[in-house]
Nucleic acid binder design. Structure first.
Lengths: 121, 121
DNA sequence: CGGCATCCTCGAAGATACTG
DNA sequence: CAGTATCTTCGAGGATGCCG
C-alpha cells in the first residue's frame, strides 16, 4: 500500500492527502461548486457553464467524481440521450472544505495585494 | 489575467482554487503538517523526516511555500550552512483547511471500506 | 549542509475526429 | 446529446552530479 509511508510519518494528519486527491483536477472544483450551487445539471448544461472545458475532460472529471461517490450520474434512455449529474449526499459533506478554502482564498488575495504594494514602495 | 474566466462563472466561490493551488504539490501537505506539528526544522531534518523526497523537490516545494509567505526561511551564515524553516503566522491560517480536510479524509476512508464490503457481498 | 544545474520520464490535460 | 478513441503537448516530478 502506498499509504504506509505517509501513515508512518503522521498517523493523525495524513488523511489530508485523501481529501486533497479528490479535489485535485483542473476542473473538479468548478464542477462541484456549480453542482452545489445550481443543483442537478445536464452534461450539456455543465459544458456550456464551464468555458474552455473539452467534452473529454468534462466526461473524465465527472467519471472520477462519480467513482468516489461525490456525484451521481443518471441516464435517461431517451433519444437524444439525457444525462443528469448531481451532488450526492455524501458529496455535499465536502462543502465545509470548499467553504473554508474559499474564505482563505479571499484573505490570501488581500494578502498578496498588500505584499505587492510593499514591494513597490 | 487567467482568473477572468473563473471569476465570470462563480464570483463568490472561485477563490477555492487559490487555496488549492497552495496546497497542491506532491510534498507540500506533509511539509506543512510537519512544520506545524514540530515547529522550526532544518533542511536536513525535513529531508530525513520525509522518506522518498529528493533534495531538489524539498528545495522546490519549500521555495514555493516561501514565495506565498506560508513558511519562513532563515539562513545562518555559518560553516557548514544552517538553514531553518518554520510556519509563518500567516501560514498557520491554513490550519483550519488542513484540519477540515483531515477530518473529511478519515470519514472518506470509512466510506470507501463500506463500499468495498458491499461490492463483495 | 544545503543547495543548484542538467537531463529524463510519464501522466494530466488538450485537440480533433468519429458515433450510438 | 453525450459521449468514445487517438494522437499530441507540456510540465511536475525524479535521478544524478557538482559546488561554496
Amino acid at each position: 500500500m502506498e499509504q504506509e509511508i505517509k501513515l508512518d510519518i503522521e498517523p493523525l494528519l495524513c488523511r489530508v492527502e485523501d481529501a486533497l486527491s479528490i479535489l485535485v483536477g483542473k476542473w473538479k472544483p468548478i464542477i462541484l461548486l456549480y453542482l452545489i450551487k445550481n443543483g442537478t445539471q445536464r452534461f450539456s448544461e455543465l459544458k456550456r457553464s464551464i468555458p474552455g472545458i473539452t467534452q473529454k475532460m468534462l466526461t473524465n472529471q465527472l467519471r472520477e467524481l462519480e467513482e468516489e461517490d461525490i456525484i451521481q450520474r443518471v441516464v435517461y434512455p431517451v433519444v437524444p440521450p439525457r444525462v443528469e449529474y448531481s451532488i450526492t449526499e455524501y458529496g455535499s459533506s465536502l462543502q465545509p472544505i470548499l467553504d473554508t478554502m474559499h474564505q482563505w482564498g479571499e484573505k490570501h488575495l488581500l494578502h498578496k495585494r498588500q505584499k505587492f504594494k510593499q514591494n513597490n514602495e
